[in-house]
């Protein structure tokens, strides 16, 4: 009897803990998280594509246009 009660208790606790752990991922990021992620991506793109331009390089670009 005691054994059965102990096993039932363990199964119950296990069910509660495990169901808490495998919650479905929620629908998406919050608006703030999404904006932060977007800004981070944009910043990375800017660093990669236009990060290192010096005043001299900009001047050369402008002279090429002129």
């Amino acid at each position: 009897m005691k054994l059965t009660s102990a096993l039932v208790l363990v199964v119950l606790v296990a069910t509660i803990v495990i169901s808490g752990c495998v919650q479905e991922p929620t629908g998406g990021l919050t608006e703030e998280q999404a904006e932060d992620q977007a800004l981070q991506t944009l910043e990375q793109e800017m660093d990669e594509a236009i990060g290192g331009m010096t005043l001299e390089e900009l001047e050369n670009e402008l002279l090429q246009q002129g």
Partner: peptide
């Protein structure tokens, strides 16, 4: 000197 970046970024799951 200015540096600008403007974009629509796709984010989410």
């Amino acid at each position: 000197l200015i540096r600008i970046g403007v974009a629509g970024i796709k984010v989410g799951l």
